[in-house]
Protein backbone atom coordinates (compact mmCIF):
# COMPACT_ATOMS: atom_id res chain seq x y z
CA UNK A 1 0.00 0.00 0.00
CA UNK A 2 1.52 3.29 -1.14
CA UNK A 3 0.32 6.87 -1.03
CA UNK A 4 2.32 9.11 -3.37
CA UNK A 5 0.96 12.58 -3.78
CA UNK A 6 1.45 16.32 -3.65
CA UNK A 7 0.45 17.74 -0.28
CA UNK A 8 -1.41 20.63 1.28
CA UNK A 9 0.49 22.54 4.00
CA UNK A 10 -1.62 23.59 7.01
CA UNK A 11 1.02 25.12 9.25
CA UNK A 12 -1.17 25.64 12.31
CA UNK A 13 -0.74 23.99 15.71
CA UNK A 14 -3.53 22.44 17.80
CA UNK A 15 -6.00 22.08 14.93
CA UNK A 16 -9.05 20.88 16.89
CA UNK A 17 -11.91 18.78 15.58
CA UNK A 18 -14.31 21.74 15.96
CA UNK A 19 -12.31 23.43 13.17
CA UNK A 20 -12.12 20.28 11.06
CA UNK A 21 -15.89 19.91 11.22
CA UNK A 22 -17.92 22.49 13.20
CA UNK A 23 -20.58 21.11 15.58
CA UNK A 24 -23.48 22.44 13.56
CA UNK A 25 -22.69 19.87 10.85
CA UNK A 26 -22.87 16.90 13.21
CA UNK A 27 -26.61 16.52 12.82
CA UNK A 28 -26.46 14.08 9.94
CA UNK A 29 -27.30 10.47 10.69
CA UNK A 30 -25.16 8.96 7.92
CA UNK A 31 -21.36 8.99 7.35
CA UNK A 32 -21.51 10.64 3.94
CA UNK A 33 -21.08 14.13 2.59
CA UNK A 34 -19.02 15.73 5.37
CA UNK A 35 -16.21 16.77 2.99
CA UNK A 36 -17.98 19.87 1.76
CA UNK A 37 -18.02 21.19 5.32
CA UNK A 38 -14.39 20.33 6.09
CA UNK A 39 -12.75 23.37 7.78
CA UNK A 40 -15.97 25.19 6.96
CA UNK A 41 -15.34 28.34 8.99
CA UNK A 42 -11.73 28.64 7.82
CA UNK A 43 -12.81 28.19 4.20
CA UNK A 44 -15.69 30.65 3.88
CA UNK A 45 -16.71 34.09 5.04
CA UNK A 46 -20.19 34.22 6.58
CA UNK A 47 -20.71 30.49 6.02
CA UNK A 48 -21.14 31.33 2.32
CA UNK A 49 -19.57 29.12 -0.35
CA UNK A 50 -19.72 32.16 -2.64
CA UNK A 51 -17.26 33.98 -0.34
CA UNK A 52 -14.15 31.79 0.01
CA UNK A 53 -11.37 33.04 2.31
CA UNK A 54 -8.63 33.34 -0.27
CA UNK A 55 -5.82 33.17 2.29
CA UNK A 56 -6.89 29.71 3.50
CA UNK A 57 -4.73 26.96 2.07
CA UNK A 58 -7.58 24.72 0.83
CA UNK A 59 -8.79 27.64 -1.28
CA UNK A 60 -5.42 28.15 -2.89
CA UNK A 61 -5.44 26.27 -6.22
CA UNK A 62 -1.64 26.12 -6.14
CA UNK A 63 -1.90 23.39 -3.50
CA UNK A 64 -3.40 20.02 -4.37
CA UNK A 65 -3.08 16.45 -3.21
CA UNK A 66 -4.29 13.55 -1.09
CA UNK A 67 -2.02 14.32 1.86
CA UNK A 68 -2.62 17.03 4.46
CA UNK A 69 0.43 18.19 6.41
CA UNK A 70 -0.34 19.95 9.70
CA UNK A 71 1.60 21.34 12.67
CA UNK A 72 1.61 19.55 16.02
CA UNK A 73 -1.37 18.23 18.03
CA UNK A 74 -3.65 17.74 15.05
CA UNK A 75 -7.19 16.52 15.83
CA UNK A 76 -7.36 17.56 19.47
CA UNK A 77 -10.64 18.13 21.27
CA UNK A 78 -13.91 16.42 20.58
CA UNK A 79 -14.08 12.67 19.83
CA UNK A 80 -16.30 13.29 16.79
CA UNK A 81 -15.42 10.74 14.11
CA UNK A 82 -17.06 13.16 11.70
CA UNK A 83 -13.63 14.86 11.55
CA UNK A 84 -12.08 11.75 10.02
CA UNK A 85 -15.10 11.25 7.75
CA UNK A 86 -14.81 14.86 6.53
CA UNK A 87 -11.09 14.58 5.72
CA UNK A 88 -11.58 11.27 3.93
CA UNK A 89 -14.65 12.49 2.07
CA UNK A 90 -12.80 15.62 0.94
CA UNK A 91 -10.20 13.37 -0.65
CA UNK A 92 -7.38 12.95 1.86
CA UNK A 93 -5.80 9.52 2.32
CA UNK A 94 -3.19 10.56 4.87
CA UNK A 95 -2.48 13.30 7.41
CA UNK A 96 1.10 14.06 8.43
CA UNK A 97 1.90 15.87 11.67
CA UNK A 98 4.53 15.88 14.41
CA UNK A 99 1.83 14.94 16.94
CA UNK A 100 -1.74 13.61 16.84
CA UNK A 101 -4.46 13.58 19.47
CA UNK A 102 -5.22 10.00 20.56
CA UNK A 103 -8.91 9.73 19.78
CA UNK A 104 -8.47 11.32 16.36
CA UNK A 105 -5.70 8.85 15.53
CA UNK A 106 -7.98 5.87 16.28
CA UNK A 107 -10.87 7.40 14.38
CA UNK A 108 -8.63 8.04 11.37
CA UNK A 109 -7.32 4.47 11.31
CA UNK A 110 -10.85 3.10 11.61
CA UNK A 111 -11.67 5.00 8.42
CA UNK A 112 -8.56 4.07 6.44
CA UNK A 113 -7.20 7.60 6.76
CA UNK A 114 -3.53 7.15 7.62
CA UNK A 115 -2.10 9.35 10.40
CA UNK A 116 1.69 9.62 9.94
CA UNK A 117 3.62 11.01 12.87
CA UNK A 118 7.00 12.52 12.00
CA UNK A 119 9.70 14.45 13.87
CA UNK A 120 9.70 18.26 14.11
CA UNK A 121 12.76 18.27 11.82
CA UNK A 122 11.07 16.17 9.16
CA UNK A 123 8.06 18.47 9.31
CA UNK A 124 10.36 21.49 8.91
CA UNK A 125 11.74 19.85 5.77
CA UNK A 126 8.21 19.47 4.36
CA UNK A 127 7.39 23.16 5.01
CA UNK A 128 10.67 24.18 3.38
CA UNK A 129 10.08 22.01 0.30
CA UNK A 130 6.59 23.30 -0.38
CA UNK A 131 7.68 26.87 0.29
CA UNK A 132 10.02 26.51 -2.69
CA UNK A 133 7.63 24.55 -4.86
CA UNK A 134 3.89 24.04 -4.36
CA UNK A 135 4.14 20.89 -6.48
CA UNK A 136 6.36 19.19 -3.87
CA UNK A 137 5.46 15.57 -3.18
CA UNK A 138 5.43 13.02 -0.38
CA UNK A 139 5.74 9.25 -0.82
CA UNK A 140 4.32 6.97 1.89
CA UNK A 141 4.90 3.22 1.96
CA UNK A 142 2.67 1.54 4.54
CA UNK A 143 4.30 -1.93 4.32
CA UNK A 144 7.75 -0.46 4.90
CA UNK A 145 6.39 2.17 7.32
CA UNK A 146 8.38 4.91 5.58
CA UNK A 147 7.61 8.45 4.51
CA UNK A 148 9.78 10.29 2.00
CA UNK A 149 10.13 14.00 1.40
CA UNK A 150 10.48 13.57 -2.37
CA UNK A 151 12.11 17.00 -2.83
CA UNK A 152 14.97 16.44 -0.38
CA UNK A 153 15.01 12.65 -0.52
CA UNK A 154 14.80 12.51 3.28
CA UNK A 155 13.22 9.25 4.46
CA UNK A 156 11.74 8.66 7.91
CA UNK A 157 10.26 5.62 9.60
CA UNK A 158 6.81 5.93 11.22
CA UNK A 159 5.04 3.80 13.82
CA UNK A 160 1.86 1.87 13.36
CA UNK A 161 0.93 -1.21 15.35
CA UNK A 162 1.16 -4.49 13.48
CA UNK A 163 -2.51 -5.31 13.94
CA UNK A 164 -3.72 -1.98 12.54
CA UNK A 165 -1.25 -2.13 9.67
CA UNK A 166 -2.64 -5.51 8.69
CA UNK A 167 -6.19 -4.10 8.87
CA UNK A 168 -5.24 -1.13 6.68
CA UNK A 169 -3.50 -3.16 4.02
CA UNK A 170 -6.20 -5.82 3.83
CA UNK A 171 -9.25 -3.67 4.51
CA UNK A 172 -10.09 -5.63 7.68
CA UNK A 173 -12.53 -4.38 10.23
CA UNK A 174 -12.16 -4.48 14.04
CA UNK A 175 -15.75 -5.58 14.51
CA UNK A 176 -15.28 -8.65 12.31
CA UNK A 177 -12.28 -9.55 14.44
CA UNK A 178 -14.12 -8.99 17.74
CA UNK A 179 -17.12 -11.01 16.56
CA UNK A 180 -14.74 -13.83 15.60
CA UNK A 181 -13.54 -14.12 19.21
CA UNK A 182 -17.01 -13.97 20.71
CA UNK A 183 -16.47 -17.19 22.69
CA UNK A 184 -13.49 -15.60 24.47
CA UNK A 185 -15.62 -12.60 25.35
CA UNK A 186 -18.40 -14.83 26.64
CA UNK A 187 -15.92 -16.83 28.72
CA UNK A 188 -14.62 -13.56 30.18
CA UNK A 189 -18.16 -12.47 31.01
CA UNK A 190 -18.92 -15.80 32.69
CA UNK A 191 -15.83 -15.46 34.88
CA UNK A 192 -15.87 -11.73 35.68
CA UNK A 193 -19.17 -10.05 35.07
Amino acid sequence: MKINSRYIPLNIENVDTDQIIPARFLKATSRDGFGKNLFRDWRYHNDDEGQPKTDFVLNNPAYQGKILVAAKNFGCGSSREHAAWALKDYGFDAVVSSFFADIFKNNALNNFLLPVQVSDEFLEGLWAAIDQNPDAEIAIDVEQQTITNVTSGEIAHFDINAYKKNCLINGYDDIDFLLSIRTDIEAYEAAHV
Binding site: R31, I103, N107, Y163, I175, E189
Partner: peptide, 23 residues
Protein backbone atom coordinates in the same frame (compact mmCIF):
# COMPACT_ATOMS: atom_id res chain seq x y z
CA UNK B 1 -13.36 6.18 31.46
CA UNK B 2 -12.63 7.66 28.05
CA UNK B 3 -14.21 9.02 24.89
CA UNK B 4 -14.45 7.02 21.67
CA UNK B 5 -15.40 7.58 18.03
CA UNK B 6 -18.49 6.25 16.33
CA UNK B 7 -16.77 3.16 14.85
CA UNK B 8 -15.79 2.29 18.40
CA UNK B 9 -19.34 2.95 19.63
CA UNK B 10 -20.41 0.36 17.09
CA UNK B 11 -17.71 -2.04 18.36
CA UNK B 12 -18.94 -1.75 21.94
CA UNK B 13 -22.59 -2.06 20.94
CA UNK B 14 -21.71 -5.18 18.90
CA UNK B 15 -19.35 -6.92 21.32
CA UNK B 16 -19.11 -4.96 24.63
CA UNK B 17 -15.36 -4.78 23.86
CA UNK B 18 -12.87 -2.38 22.32
CA UNK B 19 -9.39 -2.81 20.92
CA UNK B 20 -7.11 -0.68 23.06
CA UNK B 21 -3.37 -0.21 23.46
CA UNK B 22 -2.31 0.49 27.01
CA UNK B 23 -1.43 4.19 27.38
Amino acid sequence: AFGIGTSEVEMVLATQCLLQSKP
